[in-house]
């Protein structure tokens, strides 16, 4: 009985999936044909077949994995700094009027700055080692984290805080049991957005004077016009971005399991 109901529904979903897959596959085929017939020069863009071959070569030589680890560690370091600093700043300005007056205006002003344009300054301050890259990642990611958590704290339902007061909860308990969990959904949105900014900052930061990491591989490939290597590296960036986003989604699904839309 249940299979009879499920069967057509599953077939329908499959058909929908296949129809969505059709045009990307067609594009790939056109791309491959254009490369094979010489219509698309490998100096402009390598063909899909070459890209796959290059990817397996780079994986086999260990070059890609090493670069991936180096780049991932840079994002991890920069994003961790952003997470801690963003949460601390948002808690201070979200929980006290005084903190808000001190912290919020400068943060809002800095936010208006195109932060990728700070790279020359970062290089002057920190040299060309790891610091400017990690610093740029941290600087870019801190704003979404700060802004969403701060907004989340300010948006907490006053009525829940009042209920806590009538239950004789002290300030610490109210922050711990009501304000932090209440602001968590907003914070997680900020974390996801911050992560995408972090990867973007890394891509830019690694183009400058890197001696390791995926960005270094890209610069090296650019000098030798290896478009296949460049595309492979870009795909790796995309996959890393998707993976970290998926990780946060998993955390979200667990931490926000009390929300009906998450479990139903």
């Amino acid at each position: 009985m249940s299979r009879a109901i499920e069967g057509p529904a599953r077939a329908g979903r499959l058909a929908q999936f296949a129809s969505r897959l059709a045009s990307p596959v067609a594009l790939l085929v056109i791309w491959q044909i254009a490369s094979m017939t010489g219509l698309l020069s490998p100096r402009i863009l390598a063909g899909p077949g070459d890209i796959v071959a290059t990817a397996s070569r780079l994986i086999a030589s260990g070059e890609l994995i090493n670069g991936l680890i180096v780049s991932f560690l840079r994002v991890l370091a920069g994003f961790s700094i952003a997470l801690v600093a963003g949460i601390v700043l948002a808690l201070i300005s979200g929980l006290s009027r005084f903190g808000e007056a001190v912290i919020d205006p400068p943060v809002q002003m800095l936010k208006a700055m195109p932060f990728l344009g700070l790279l020359p300054l970062f290089i002057l301050w920190f040299g060309i080692g790891e610091m400017p890259k990690i610093g740029l990642v941290a600087f870019g990611a801190i704003f979404p984290i700060y802004l969403t958590l701060y907004g989340g704290i300010r948006g907490i339902d006053r009525k829940l805080i009042e209920a806590g007061q009538t239950m004789d909860l002290g300030t610490t308990s109210i922050i711990r049991h009501i304000i932090i969990p209440g602001a968590l959904p907003s914070l997680l949105v900020g974390v996801r957005y911050g992560l995408s900014v972090a990867w973007l900052s890394l891509v830019v930061g690694e183009q400058i004077n890197a001696s390791s990491g995926i960005g270094y591989t890209i610069s090296y490939a650019r000098d030798f016009m290896q478009t296949d290597v460049i595309v492979v590296c870009l795909l790796v960036y995309a996959i890393l971005g998707l993976l970290t986003d998926g990780l946060v989604r998993m955390i979200e699904a667990y931490a926000l399991r009390w929300r009906p839309e998450v479990f139903g």
């Binding site: 009525k159 829940l160 009042e162 209920a163 806590g164 239950m167 004789d168 909860l169 308990s173 049991h177 009501i178 969990p181 209440g182 968590l184 926000l256 009390w258 929300r259």
Partner: peptide, 19 residues
């Protein structure tokens, strides 16, 4: 209160036991 004002992120028993 007129609205239950339960904390949505705590189970029913944790809401009652809180504090």
């Amino acid at each position: 209160f007129q609205e239950p004002r339960l904390l949505p992120w705590k189970s029913v028993i944790d809401n009652v036991a809180l504090g």
